[in-house]
Design a binder for these strands. Structure first.
Lengths: 105, 105
DNA sequence: CCATTATTTCGAAAAAAATCGAAATAATGG
DNA sequence: CCATTATTTCGATTTTTTTCGAAATAATGG
């Protein structure tokens, strides 16, 4: 898992609107949420939402599945797990939840 | 730990150059690295580096300590640990390293 | 105080991102 | 095929970010 995958994912989540959006999907769980529901909840124009969704989808953090008329969006946990794994393995040290390396060359 | 702290941190790390920079600091461990050393390693203009460093420092992910002429930069692990904690607690679900909630709220 | 090394601020230009209305495309039911 | 609902693409504007040279500031030793 290299930085060329990780950095865009961090950037995707590093926007208040998209982080909020992503968290709505996490809370929605396996059922996911249709784009339209997200739009109501976030209360933003459809075209703006579509733009942000595209960024999340393009980094692999969100998946979409069409169910007839509606597009269901879901948080894609494997991507998030890999992201957390990267941060834990390669960006943490010392105290706390992360591992305890001190200066892995 | 709310999104007003987390989103800027994710944004700070969501830039290939800054992620690289941050990882250099992680690898440097507790000793940290002077700005000048970072500049040599990353091979970018001082003013550009200063700009990126400022962003990392302003989000709390990096600290700086002056040692006479030189400014030592260090990864600030408590911030990273809190960030990983946030992602684990509020952005993960199902399988993998993260916790196993299914549809909190 | 001056020279030197280290780092930041300033200012300006280029690149990228965010915003959103209007028009276009998708999918369905009738 | 048409009407309807759902979502995206287009196009234009504004805002933010990135970039970097030149000048300014900081800290030290002499």
């Amino acid at each position: 898992m290299n930085t060329e995958i990780i950095a865009p994912q961090l950037e995707a989540l590093g926007n208040a609107r998209r982080l909020d959006l992503y968290r709505h999907l996490v809370r929605a769980g396996a059922a996911g949420l249709p784009v339209g529901s997200l739009q109501e909840r976030l209360n933003i124009p459809a075209s703006t939402l579509s733009h942000h969704l595209k960024r999340l989808v393009s980094t692999g953090l969100v998946t979409q599945e069409r169910q007839s008329t509606v597009l269901i969006c879901r948080a894609h946990y494997p991507a998030m797990n890999a992201l957390v794994g990267f941060l834990t393995d390669e960006c943490c040290a010392d105290e706390g939840r992360c591992d305890t390396r001190e200066s892995a060359a």
